[in-house]
Amino acid sequence: MNRELSVAGIDLFAYSVLGSTNDEARRLAEVGRRGPLAVWTAVQPGGRGRGGRNWAGPRGNLMVSLLLHPDRAPAEAGSMALAAGLAVANCAREWGADACIKWPNDVLVEDAKLAGILLEAGSEGGRLDWMAVGVGLNLAEAPALDRPTTCIGPDVPVETALERVVEAVLQRYRQWLAGGFAAMRDEWLERAAWIGRAVRVGEGQGAVEGVMRTVDENGSLVVCDAAGVERRVAAGEVFPLES
């Protein structure tokens, strides 16, 4: 069932069950709906994270996507995922979780995954046509994944989290439109996980290993390799290296 409501001052498409909120946001964009608008579902059996990984969406957790239409170059889109991660991490801290951000799109509590951001976009004529910013936040339940997970706990209702997270992501989106990721970089770094830690970024022959130094003004990860060379990485999965 689809109900068209509102949340944080924008249109909300609400479902009892939906395969993927990002897929629905994309569909709405393709049929001409203009954002900002939000797509929320109580249960999401077909959710996914980066790289197509499964992201369980049981009842009691938050699964929501924002459909946005920034007039920006496609290369700029990725840094909006960092902005959304900062928004979600700060919300989690308001609810008592010691949340930090793992570049580029995870929110952690003591290395356990609390939330994930999935950003997908379409472009036309060299400019972004639409952008879907998906948020999966473990509220009542920590789903079983191939890595440690955690949750906020039952004291934060889904309705409360929905309103606050949508509001917070929209605030960061407006800040991102005005000044890019650079406008919030210092605050993002205050919440950053694994700075100073030995990591591997990516897999296979193209992987980069070294010490995570910082994130630059464009949102790229800066890793210092064994030769002392700073390597900038625009996208990829980060894995900790054993000390």
Rank of each mutant, 00 (worst) to 15 (best):
A81R: 12
G46K: 09
G51Q: 08
G46A: 08
A92D: 01
D71S: 10
S65G: 07
G60N: 01
V88E: 10
A38M: 13
W95Y: 13
V107H: 02
A84L: 09
V64E: 08
G60P: 02
V107Y: 01
A87H: 03
K113S: 05
M80T: 07
L119S: 14
A25Y: 09
N90T: 15
G85S: 15
S20M: 06
D98E: 13
P45H: 08
R27K: 12
L18C: 00
A77G: 14
D98K: 09
I10P: 03
D71Q: 09
L18T: 00
S123Q: 14
N61M: 01
H69A: 11
G122Q: 05
N105A: 08
G47P: 14
G85M: 05
A38K: 03
E76L: 12
R26P: 01
V7W: 07
K113W: 10
G52P: 14
V64Y: 10
A42P: 06
A75Q: 15
G57Q: 08
L108S: 04
V107Q: 02
V64I: 12
T21P: 11
R53I: 06
L118S: 11
V7Y: 07
F13P: 00
L37F: 11
E110H: 01
G46W: 04
V17E: 14
G60H: 02
G47C: 06
N90V: 13
K102A: 13
P70R: 02
D71V: 07
V43Q: 07
V43D: 03
G51N: 12
G85W: 00
E120F: 05
G19I: 01
V107N: 03
I101G: 05
A77Q: 12
N54C: 14
E24N: 03
V7H: 06
R27G: 11
A14W: 07
S123G: 15
A121F: 05
G122R: 06
V107E: 00
A8Y: 08
G122L: 12
P58V: 03
Q44Y: 06
H69V: 01
G96T: 00
A83G: 12
A97T: 04
L62H: 02
D23G: 14
R50G: 15
E30D: 09
L118Q: 09
L37Q: 06
A99C: 09
N90M: 14
L18A: 00
E30Q: 15
R34W: 07
A121G: 05
A38V: 14
S123L: 10
G9D: 06
R27Q: 11
A75L: 14
G116P: 11
G51A: 13
L118W: 09
S123T: 15
M63E: 04
L82E: 07
A112P: 05
P45R: 02
C100A: 05
V64S: 03
L67Q: 03
D106V: 12
N22D: 07
A77Y: 10
G57M: 01
H69F: 10
A56L: 11
G78M: 09
